[in-house]
């Protein structure tokens, strides 16, 4: 096994990259530095990892569900309020009608006095 390991070290010794490799890397790095991403691209970059995308989608779904629940709750309160308001108006109308009747009765001269 030792011989195989020695042969592997020989076979896998480091090799030099093709001529001009470093220059090409440096040129690309300069190009990369010159075209730094804008705000929108950096913002998109934040959402690149899969886990972050899933988390963002989950958070958005939660916000939508919460908003829907709150809207439904608001609608129910509004309906109850309108119902209560209608009942109050109805009660006022009934009370007003009864009061008017009482006032009319009170304003009418008594029949007995006229006969006397």
């Amino acid at each position: 096994m030792k011989r195989l390991e020695d042969e592997l070290k020989t076979a896998l010794r480091r090799v030099e990259p093709p001529a001009g490799f470093a220059e090409r890397v440096l040129a690309q790095a300069r190009q990369q530095a010159d075209s730094k991403p804008g705000f929108a691209a950096r913002l998109r970059g934040l959402f690149r990892p899969r886990a972050v995308r899933w988390a963002a989608a989950f958070a958005s779904a939660c916000v939508l569900i919460l908003a829907a629940a709150r809207y439904r709750q608001y609608q129910q309160v509004k309906i109850q309020g309108e119902l209560a308001s209608a009942q109050a108006r109805q009660a006022l109308r009934i009370a007003s009608a009864k009061l008017n009747a009482v006032l009319k009765d009170a304003a009418r001269p008594p029949h007995r006095n006229l006969e006397n």
């Binding site: 010794r13 480091r14 090799v15 470093a22």
Partner: peptide
């Protein structure tokens, strides 16, 4: 972000990185 430093590092480690990828 010093370009000369990056160049030195590329030249120093190019053989290591290239050899791993090549082998």
């Amino acid at each position: 972000g010093d370009a000369a430093s990056f160049e030195l590092i590329v030249r120093r480690y190019q053989s290591m990185v290239f050899s791993l990828a090549y082998h």
